[in-house]
Amino acid sequence: MIHTTIEKIKSYKNGFSINTKHKLIGWFFVIPGALLIFSFYFYPIIRAFILSLQGGVGNNLRFAGLFNYKRLLQDGLFKQSMFNVFIYLILQVPIMLSLALILAGILNDRTLKFRSFFRTAIFVPCATSLVSYAIIFRSMFALDGFINTILMNLNILAEPINWLGGPWTARLLIVIGLTWRWTGYNMIFYLAGLQNIDPAIYEAAKIDGASAFDRLTKITIPILKPIILLTTIMSTNGTLQIFDETQNLTSGGPANATLSVSQYIYRLSFEYVPRFGYAAAIAFVVFIIVAVLSFMQLKVGDER
């Protein structure tokens, strides 16, 4: 099929210049992918935007203009969920990425024994299901759970901490869970980046008397910069859309202290009286925030 079409295009040789012909072939290869992206990515985004302009409940939708966007400015739960998500973002992304960088640095040492074992061990959390790890975390951090028992037996705590009961301990728990789950994932990117750095550079730096800290800040980080940028954007995006952890670990509680935006969208669509238009408007706001943050990070990170 493809061959015959290429033959056909070739047979029009006389009609087109060589330049046009090349362009045509290029388009021919691009079109299937472009069509797929358009129909499964851009088309739904456009439809979601149109939906976000409609107000009403369930099937009784009607055009409402920007009403949904005005409504969400007054929505206490939306503000609360935005606040929670930004707390996760501010606390978790820097902790996780610096941890990943440190681990990658340690594991890149060629003299380290059992290197591949440690790499695998740190990456493995990433292969576990989001739901199952959230459930295991919940039982580990229960009032009479593993963590409290250990801490009390070590005499670090006198009274067990009710992790899931307090707003800040519950948020901390989500941050701990996220860090455990995603550090290994980001570490792999850094490891891949570190492989590309010629060891000779470090040797030269050592001879010139650069300390380990200097080598990290003056060689490793500048060379890894594009990768750090990539992981930051990916983590920001992921954290803003967090759903599984808050749903399964804390189900948004206590008193909505861990409710995430995606979870609120889910509630609006499937638990509460369905307001798909309003839910789409919130989704769109998240989309815009992610886009703006990514753009800012690109601008800050890109010095070319």
Partner: peptide, 20 residues
């Protein structure tokens, strides 16, 4: 009522706050 889930969630939140 239609808004039962919303009301129950709101009251659950209120009760957690009262307990705190």
């Amino acid at each position: 009522g239609i808004y039962n889930y919303e009301a129950r969630d709101a009251v659950s939140t209120a009760i957690t706050q009262i307990m705190q």
